[in-house]
């Protein structure tokens, strides 16, 4: 039996609870196991980002709770929750969101520095990831000197660096051209396979959906489908 990493129970997010309640999420149940490569799709306003924020402990559900590796993160407050995120969850955001004043290397090191990892271990991990994402020659470049695709690759490396329990990526390819998006997907799939890293995406992008092993469809805050697209099944064997 596969180990459950994310366990969301009866998750709801209701806005304007006292007047006319608007359900951004409506009683969502979700279990994600270690090593999954899951895409959450749905039209705008369907609750993809809200679900990701709940799983990532960035937002508090109105009802229900989220367990990460058995820890109910909904009960965690303030710095306790921030520390939990630091040590367990990797984030990749839509608009790259690198720290603009740090170089590619420093951005990748950032979370490990917050975790106070030994310098030697950090150096080794950064080199490993830079090689993995193919940006060894951009080590000292700041985000403004990198292309959108390169920035997003650094963001993925940063999320992966501390070896979190899973990575949440909110529309990671939304601002990328097709070549960059393809490159990024390949890197993420490779890391998923090689490091058994769990990835959960929210996406509109059919390219991501096609490569996902599991696709969850949200509509009006509810899960309406949870499938593995046939297109992906045979593709998994030939990851570039």
């Amino acid at each position: 039996m596969q180990e459950t990493v994310i366990d969301a129970h009866n998750l709801s997010k209701i806005y304007d609870e006292k007047t006319i309640p608007v359900y951004a999420l409506n009683k969502v149940h979700l279990h994600i196991s270690r090593g999954e490569f899951t895409a959450i799709k749905g039209p705008s306003g369907s609750g993809k980002t809200t679900l990701l924020n709940m799983i990532g402990g960035l937002d508090i559900p109105s009802e229900g709770f989220v367990e990460i590796n058995g820890t109910n993160i909904t009960k965690l407050k303030g710095n306790e929750l921030i520390d939990f995120r630091l040590n367990n969850i990797g984030f990749v955001f839509q608009s790259y969101n690198l720290i603009p004043v740090l170089t590619a290397k420093e951005n990748i090191e950032f979370i490990m520095l917050l975790q106070k990892r030994p310098k030697k271990e950090m150096e080794q991990r950064v080199q490993e990831l830079l090689k993995e994402i193919g940006l060894e020659d951009k080590i000292n470049k700041r985000p403004r000197e990198l292309s959108g695709g390169q920035q997003q690759r650094v963001a993925v490396a940063r999320a992966l660096a501390p070896k979190p329990q899973f990575i949440l990526a909110d529309e990671p390819t939304a601002n990328l051209d097709s070549v960059s998006a393809e490159n990024l997907l390949n890197i993420m799939l490779k890391l998923n396979q090689e490091e058994n890293m769990t990835f959960v995406f929210s996406t509109h992008d059919q390219r991501v959906i096609n490569r996902a092993r599991r696709v969850i469809t949200l509509e009006d805050g509810k899960i309406v489908a949870d499938t593995a697209p046939t297109a992906v099944i045979h593709e998994q064997t030939e990851i570039k």
């Binding site: 990532g56 710095n79 921030i82 630091l86 984030f91 720290i99 950032f110 979370i111 917050l114």
Partner: peptide
Amino acid sequence: TREIGMLLALGMNKFK
């Protein structure tokens, strides 16, 4: 605002 939100999301605590 967005950058600070990102830092909080990544795990930079409030003291930092």
